[in-house]
Computed example of a mutant assay.
Amino acid sequence: MLSVVVEHIFLLVLVTLVSVLQNAFFATKVEREGKEHHNNTSAFERVSCANRNCMDSYPTFLAVMWCAGLCLNQAPAAFAGLVYLVARQKYFVGYMGQTSQSTPGYLFGKRVLSFLFLMCIVGIFNLLLVRYFGNDFKDTVETITTAASALLLIP
Rank of each mutant, 00 (worst) to 15 (best):
C54M: 10
M55C: 09
M55P: 05
M55F: 12
D56A: 10
S57L: 11
Y58Q: 10
Y58W: 10
P59N: 11
P59V: 08
P59G: 09
T60W: 05
F61Q: 01
F61M: 07
F61Y: 08
L62F: 06
L62I: 08
L62T: 00
V64T: 10
M65F: 03
M65N: 03
M65G: 02
W66M: 06
W66V: 00
C67L: 13
C67G: 13
C67P: 05
C67Y: 03
A68E: 01
A68T: 01
G69V: 00
G69P: 11
G69S: 09
L70H: 02
L70V: 09
L70W: 06
C71P: 01
C71V: 08
L72N: 03
L72G: 06
L72H: 03
N73F: 10
N73D: 15
N73H: 13
Q74A: 08
Q74M: 08
Q74Y: 06
A75P: 04
A75E: 12
A75W: 07
A75Q: 13
P76M: 04
P76S: 06
A77E: 04
A78R: 02
F79M: 11
A80D: 05
A80M: 07
A80Q: 05
G81I: 00
L82R: 02
L82H: 00
V83M: 12
V83G: 01
V83C: 11
Y84C: 06
L85K: 02
L85P: 04
A87Y: 05
A87L: 06
A87F: 08
A87I: 00
R88G: 07
R88A: 08
Q89A: 14
Q89V: 10
K90V: 09
Y91F: 15
Y91H: 06
Y91L: 12
Y91W: 06
F92E: 03
F92A: 05
V93G: 13
G94V: 02
G94I: 01
Y95F: 13
Y95N: 07
Y95R: 07
M96I: 09
G97H: 14
G97M: 09
G97D: 15
Q98E: 15
Q98V: 13
T99W: 08
T99K: 14
T99R: 15
S100R: 11
S100E: 15
Q101K: 13
S102T: 04
T103P: 02
P104A: 11
P104W: 12
P104H: 09
P104E: 11
G105I: 00
G105Y: 08
G105A: 11
Y106R: 11
Y106W: 14
Y106D: 05
Y106T: 07
Y106S: 11
L107H: 14
L107F: 12
L107K: 15
F108P: 01
F108K: 10
F108E: 05
F108Q: 10
G109K: 03
K110Q: 12
K110M: 15
R111H: 12
R111C: 11
R111V: 09
R111W: 11
V112R: 00
V112W: 01
V112Q: 00
L113R: 07
L113S: 03
L113P: 02
L113E: 04
F115Q: 04
F115K: 03
L116N: 02
L116K: 04
L116D: 01
